[in-house]
């Protein structure tokens, strides 16, 4: 293993004073410096920002309606009037994708948020309370890890969809259901990560010092341990956004996610899959969008790992 610190400070001939003279960087600047070294991550950040921008403000520049049915121009390839072509009802695919992209990305972010909140809570409780509570919580975590996720996801959606639809409306009901279920089935990696961090951090001297000063248990966790455990959580959370986007697209692709009038990227792909021979563009654009979003988020996660996760410095 190549050690990142030289064996002695003067190993490369420079006097130690020269090292001390360099101004110390703040932790966030230091992280940004490490992140920038990951060229693909930086490129991904640019691309993802672009995607988010297009999805968020796209309707300002492309004000076509998503449900403007026009049978005179159905299944057309990309043209000036319809840059991404049209579907079997003559609806503009670009407009549909801008609208659907908001839902897809929002589901990804919200499900990540659910997963991280649940994961951090369980991991923190488990890491602070050793003994029986810890063992029980870890058993539950392992149990959830060994659940077959997609079948269970499908089962829950199948059983609860109608009920929530009538309670919260078709769009809101499905959104809440999908976010909660995806988040509720993906918190386990975060919980294990947080627990492992807590187990090592709670024995550190600075926690000891805070405890000696009379900090309560809650304060220890919130002010001292959690901030130090956050790096890996941010990395895991980033990857989780990508996973949640894939999960939502999968559900929509199987025809079990959002209803047809809410064209998330997976849903557009589901509608397109029977016209692959006559209108390949219809499938390529939404599929490409999912791929690009997931790929860039994964690369950013990798870059953040370099930047924030000190264990991975090789």
């Amino acid at each position: 293993m190549v050690s990142s610190t030289p064996a002695s400070l003067s190993a490369d001939g420079k006097p130690p004073a020269a090292l001390a003279a360099a101004p110390p960087l703040s932790p966030s600047r230091e992280a940004w410096r490490r992140f920038r070294k990951h060229k693909l991550a930086v490129a991904s950040l640019v691309v993802l920002t672009l995607i988010v921008f297009c999805v968020a403000f796209g309707t300002l520049f492309w004000p076509l309606a998503i449900n403007d049915i026009d049978f005179s121009s159905m299944l057309q390839g990309p043209s000036m009037a319809h840059p991404f072509g049209t579907d079997d009802l003559g609806q503009d695919i670009l407009a549909r994708m801008i609208y659907g992209g908001r839902i897809s990305l929002a589901v990804g972010l919200a499900a990540m948020f659910v997963a991280v909140v649940v994961g951090v809570t369980i991991g923190a409780i488990s890491g602070m309370a050793s003994g029986r509570v810890d063992a029980a919580l870890m058993w539950v975590t392992d149990l959830f890890l060994s659940l077959p996720q997609l079948p269970l996801l499908l089962l829950v959606i199948y059983l609860f969809r109608e009920g929530l639809k009538s309670a919260l409306g078709p769009e809101g009901g499905v959104f809440v259901l999908i976010v909660v279920v995806i988040g509720g089935l993906r918190w386990m990696p975060v919980a294990r990560l947080v627990r492992a961090q807590f187990l090592s951090l709670r024995e550190k001297e600075f926690v000891e010092a805070a405890r000696a000063l009379g900090a309560s248990r809650m304060r220890l966790v919130v002010r001292h341990i959690l901030p130090n455990a956050l790096g890996p959580v941010i990395v895991a959370g980033t990857i989780e956004v990508a996973n949640a986007i894939i999960a939502e697209s999968t559900l929509s692709f199987l025809g079990l996610g959002f209803p047809p009038d809410i064209p998330t990227w997976g849903r557009v792909l589901f509608d397109a899959k029977d016209q692959l021979d006559t209108a390949p563009h219809w499938a390529l654009f939404p599929g490409g969008a999912i791929f690009l979003a997931v790929l860039t988020i994964n690369f950013i996660g990798d870059g953040l790992r370099d930047a924030l996760d000190p264990r991975r410095v090789l």
Binding site: L269, L276, P280, G287, V294, L295
Partner: peptide, 25 residues
């Protein structure tokens, strides 16, 4: 490493459709 990233960022449903487009159609 880059190919691996692309590999697991491509959702299986999209890879499947791509393969059908290329090899079947």
């Amino acid at each position: 490493n880059t190919l691996a990233f692309i590999g697991f960022s491509l959702p299986t449903f999209f890879t499947g459709l791509l393969l059908i487009m290329v090899f079947s159609i």
